[in-house]
């Protein structure tokens, strides 16, 4: 799939935002006062910015409100509702915390749960797609959630939670890569089933229907060299998981700067992970083009 900047930005930032918000709502160290201002503001800003970024992806952003109508069937529509609801609830919670200095646990818990559901909904936009076998797996949701939590824990400065989450997420990510590489084959879709010509021999795309690009080839068929993909996976793993864990282990000695470095490394890593999430995902339509 084409790794569109707007969508990478959207999923990375909103994931970070909702993860952080969840932690702000129900984290063990309650935030109030100016800490709350900074925390909630950045959480809401991140989530909001992510959503804004996603609108850049639209052909008709001015009609975005229409996307709220199909919540009964569409994960994208649900995600829209949930994101708004989450922003509203966590916003209200923040208002109480910031302006009144009080905590409303039911509201906070509701906010946190909504964050999780929103993240799940976002992940389901991808995970539901049978056409992209790599995504069509529980690891997609697991990783969307876990990465968000990692970000939340990091931004909340919860050292050991963060370290544990990062380590666990790293393992799940490795598993997702391993299983992901065999998903297309496991899907059962092949050029033979795509064309129905398998019975008479090996099927190969001879000539594409158009010599130039098309929306399809640009959007669905992004071929990334295996070599590059390995390199990027290593880089992403290093940045998102290994480096933050290593830095955090030293954090108590050096304080804030290290935290900042760990967060930056992680966020940068997640960008790369997301880029790979799209770039490595093979759409079955590629079987018609002899490219994946």
């Amino acid at each position: 799939m084409h790794p569109a900047k707007s969508i990478i930005l959207f999923t990375t930032l909103s994931g970070l935002g909702f993860g952080f918000l969840a932690f702000l709502c129900v984290g063990p160290s309650p935030v109030t006062g100016w800490g709350a201002v900074a925390g909630f503001a950045s959480g809401l800003a991140l989530a909001g910015a992510g959503l804004m970024a996603s609108a850049f992806h639209l052909g008709h952003p001015e009609r975005a409100l229409k996307a709220f109508t199909q919540w009964r069937s569409s994960w994208l529509s649900r995600e829209g509702w949930l994101a708004c609801a989450t922003l509203a609830v966590t916003g209200a919670n923040a208002a109480f915390a910031v302006f009144a200095g009080i905590r409303v646990p039911p509201l906070a818990w509701l906010g946190a749960v909504l964050c999780v559901i929103t993240l799940t909904a976002t992940s389901m936009i991808y995970a539901q797609l049978k056409t992209v076998p790599r995504w069509n797996h529980w690891t997609t949701t697991a990783l969307f959630l876990l990465l968000a939590f990692c970000g939340g824990a990091l931004l909340s400065a919860m050292t050991w939670t963060a370290v544990t989450l990062l380590a666990g997420t790293g393992l799940v990510q490795c598993y997702a890569w391993r299983i992901g590489d065999s998903r297309l084959r496991a899907s059962g879709t092949t050029s033979a089933t795509a064309t129905g010509l398998g019975g008479s021999g090996a099927v190969r795309s001879f000539e594409p229907p158009h010599t130039g690009d098309s929306y399809l080839t640009r959007e669905m068929i992004h071929v990334i060299a295996r070599r590059h993909s390995r390199k990027l996976r290593r880089t992403a793993f290093l940045l998102s998981f290994l480096l933050p864990v290593a830095l955090l282990s030293a954090a108590s000695a050096y304080g804030q700067a290290i935290w900042a470095a760990a967060i930056c490394a992680h966020v940068a890593g997640v960008f790369v992970l997301r880029w790979l999430f799209f770039a490595e995902a093979e759409h079955v339509v590629g079987f018609y083009y002899g490219r994946r």
Binding site: S191, T195, L197, S200, G201, A202, V203, R204, S205, F206, E207, P208, P209, H210, S214, Y288, Y289
Partner: peptide
């Protein structure tokens, strides 16, 4: 759109 495929029988 019209694709074309080559089929190589065994």
């Amino acid at each position: 759109r019209v694709h074309s495929f080559e089929v190589q029988p065994d």
